Simulated scan of single mutants.
Amino acid sequence: MSTAHWILAVPLALFYLYAGALKVLRSPDRLRPMMAWVDRVPLPALRTLGVLELLGALGLLVPDALAPWPAPAAAAGLVLLQLGAIPVHLTGGDRRIGLNLALLVAAAAALWLSVA
């Protein structure tokens, strides 16, 4: 993997480690101030999203020397996650999707860099 991949993957992974841990550990009441959409998602789905974010973050950090497939698979999964998150925000009346778009672009770039 290139240096560019690591420069992008490490902060992206740290973001998803934090966001995933919050979704797995915190109650919806504690998440609501920062994630207005939590009331529209069942708790098991919220926890599953958190676990997927944690797995994606860890997958981004697996070096090619150990296995060549986790980083591209994780990046692709995070792209899909954001492709699902954007409509959830838009259909709920939340037009603040700038972070989602940035995460989508970053995950797509990490995917490209992990296979290049």
Rank of each mutant, 00 (worst) to 15 (best):
W6N: 01
W69A: 10
G20N: 15
H5V: 08
A21K: 14
G98W: 06
L52Y: 12
L90Y: 07
A74I: 01
R96Y: 03
A65V: 06
P28E: 15
A75I: 01
W112S: 12
L113M: 01
G84S: 11
G84Y: 13
E53I: 13
L49P: 02
P44E: 09
V41L: 02
K23Y: 07
L61I: 03
P70V: 10
V88E: 10
L12W: 08
T3P: 00
P68A: 14
D29K: 08
T91E: 14
A57H: 09
A19R: 14
M1Q: 09
M34R: 14
A13C: 10
G59E: 06
L22Q: 15
H89K: 15
A106Y: 03
A21M: 14
M35F: 11
P72W: 03
Y16N: 15
A71V: 11
P70I: 08
P68N: 09
A107H: 11
A116Y: 08
L14G: 13
A45C: 06
Q82T: 13
L61E: 01
I86M: 15
M34V: 12
A109G: 11
R95T: 11
W112D: 09
Y18H: 14
A21H: 13
A110E: 05
A13N: 08
L78I: 05
V79R: 09
L103N: 12
L46D: 10
V41D: 00
A71Y: 08
P42E: 13
H89M: 12
R95A: 10
G20M: 15
M34I: 12
V88F: 06
L60Y: 05
R32H: 04
A110L: 07
R32A: 07
P63E: 05
L81C: 07
R96I: 00
Y16A: 13
G50K: 12
V51M: 11
L58T: 13
A65W: 11
L12C: 00
V38F: 05
L25D: 09
H5W: 04
L25T: 14
P42M: 03
A36F: 00
A45K: 02
V79S: 03
P68E: 08
N100C: 13
A108H: 08
L78T: 05
A36I: 10
A45P: 01
A67Q: 04
P11N: 12
L104D: 08
P70E: 11
L8C: 04
L60K: 07
P70F: 07
D29T: 10
G77A: 07
G93M: 06
R96S: 04
L99H: 02
Q82F: 14
R26Q: 13
L104K: 02
L81I: 09
M1G: 07
G59D: 00
V41N: 00
G92D: 13
L83P: 05
A4D: 00
E53T: 14
L8Q: 04
